[in-house]
Every structure is written in C-alpha cells, then in structure tokens.
C-alpha cells in the first residue's frame, strides 16, 4: 500500500520550469550577437585582366554612350554636362532609340556604354552613376518582358525568356582606366 503511493508520487511529471530559463539564456545570447546584416549590393562582373594593350577597334560614334565623372563628381555625357537624375532616362533613349535617330545606337545589341571616372571621384557619385545605368537596362528589360510575356522581368522568370531578353538588349558597360587629376 505504502509502496504504490510512493510510486504514484514519483510518476508526477518532471518539472520543466527551468527549461524556459535555459532557453531564455540562449535566446538572449543570440539576441545580443545578432546583426541582421543587409547583404545587398550591385553585382558586377569585372573584365579579366590582361597585360596586353587593348586593341583599338574603332566604334561608330553613334553607338557609344560615353559617361565621364570628374573629381568634382560632375557628369559629362556625350560631351554635355548632365545632372545625374536625367542619366537613366537619357541612357534608355540612347539604347532603345525609339525614333531611329541617327546619332543614337543602331540597335540595342550595338549600344556600348563607356564609363570613365577620375581617381578623385567620390565612391558615392560613382555608385550612383553606375546604379542609374544599371537601372536604365533593368527598366528596358522590364518593359520588353511586359510587352512580350506580360510578366515583369525578374530573376525567377523562366531562363529562356530571360536569355531572349538579354540577347536582345545585352548589358554592355565598359569601364576605362580612370584619369588621375583629382587624387587626394
């Protein structure tokens, strides 16, 4: 009789109260060490290094969209001073050339954007310009995708669609060796 009553008492559930404390400790540790890092950025593919001098191929002037950024972060686009917020729109017009103007790219596949900066250009300005040029292409891709497939251009659309668009409007941005007028 006494034995059974003792066993009854033993079979009570284990006190799980301290489990919460342990979990709390771990939780607080991770809370403190966490930095939810925003690991985002503009991905670029650099051209491979070669010791040889690049062979000079004459490009037709109409196919080149030259962007120069000087040490004062000012912009010279095709020989004209331009504000950075007009760059995207101008680049789009140049690449797509909707009115078949004789001074703009023959075809999007032939368009070349040439970016040149100075060693004294601030990184802020450089990245903003790069961002605008990339945005111009992104918007063109998006417009084409909407027109042809009725869906927005994104990384997870079918690969064949993406390739078709990228073949039609390839991203060509060539960066020249920077000048060194304004090195600090």
């Amino acid at each position: 009789m006494a034995k059974t009553s003792a066993r009854d008492r033993m079979s009570n559930e284990i006190n799980a109260g301290s489990m919460a404390d342990i979990a709390f400790l771990l939780l607080i540790f991770f809370l403190v060490t966490t930095t939810i890092v925003e690991d985002k950025g503009i991905t670029v593919k650099l051209p491979p290094w070669s010791e040889e001098e690049p062979d000079i191929t004459r490009l037709k002037e109409r196919n080149v969209f030259s962007v120069l950024v000087n040490a004062q972060d000012q912009l010279l686009v095709r020989g004209e001073i331009m504000a950075v917020d007009r760059l995207r729109e101008q680049a789009k017009i140049f690449i797509a050339n909707p009115y078949n103007r004789p001074d703009m790219a023959e075809r999007p596949t032939k368009a070349i954007i040439s970016l040149k900066n100075d060693r004294g250009t601030s990184y802020n300005a450089y990245l903003e310009v790069y961002n605008e040029l990339k945005a111009a292409y992104n918007e063109l891709w998006d417009e084409m995708s909407q027109r042809q497939y009725g869906i927005p251009y994104s990384e997870d659309m079918p690969f064949a669609y993406r390739k078709a668009i990228r073949d039609e409007i390839p991203f060509v941005l060539s960066e020249a060796e920077p000048t060194a007028f304004g090195e600090e």
Binding site: I42, T43, K45, S122, Y123, P178
Partner: peptide, 23 residues
C-alpha cells in the same frame, strides 16, 4: 575617393576574382 577602389578592383582582376558586389 575612387583611387583606392580602383586599385583594389585592379588587384581583384589580376587575381581572377571577377565577381564583385558593391555593397
């Protein structure tokens, strides 16, 4: 300024590290 960034980029190219992300 871009000077040091350019030097780093050049070195990355020389080392064959071509995939770069500007954070």
């Amino acid at each position: 300024t871009m000077g040091i960034v350019q030097d780093v980029k050049t070195q990355l190219r020389k080392s064959g590290q071509l995939k770069v992300n500007y954070s």
